[in-house]
């Protein structure tokens, strides 16, 4: 499974979101998920199974596939909740969910 985080420049907000997602994946003991950060202009539908974006570019990203919109890019609780939902939606086992 591949997760992309996307913002307009592809190196600030999206990178931070990717690092926060990586941290949650590690906490949850989830393996086999590839993550990367990109700028909006370089992403095409099908590039990833799930795409995480901030609320401000939700409209611009809506046709890219399974898009998850975050209200905050640094709220680990929100990231964890929405990440677990996305993983389950794509049939990925979440070993650490009980502790989440």
């Amino acid at each position: 499974m591949k997760i992309l985080t996307v913002c307009s420049t592809g190196l600030g907000s999206s990178f931070m979101t990717q690092l926060n997602i990586d941290k949650v994946l590690k906490e949850l003991g989830v393996t086999g998920v590839e993550t990367d950060h990109r700028d909006l202009g370089s992403v095409s539908p099908g590039d990833a199974d799930v795409i995480f974006v901030g609320r401000d570019i939700a409209d611009a990203a809506k046709d890219l596939g399974d898009v998850v919109v975050l209200d905050s890019l640094i709220d680990m609780k929100e990231i964890k909740e929405k990440l677990i939902e996305a993983l389950k939606r794509h049939g990925v086992a979440v070993p650490g969910e009980e502790q989440a």
Binding site: C7, S8, T9, L11, G12, S13, M16, G54, D56, I57, D59, A60, D71, S72, L73, I74, D75
Partner: peptide
């Protein structure tokens, strides 16, 4: 310029914190 554009507020990370940046 980036902040003025539609969606330019994406640098708002939440919790009152913004990360102003552009391309290298």
């Amino acid at each position: 310029e980036s902040i003025r554009k539609p969606g330019g507020t994406y640098i708002d990370l939440g919790q009152g914190i913004a990360l102003a940046h552009s391309r290298p």
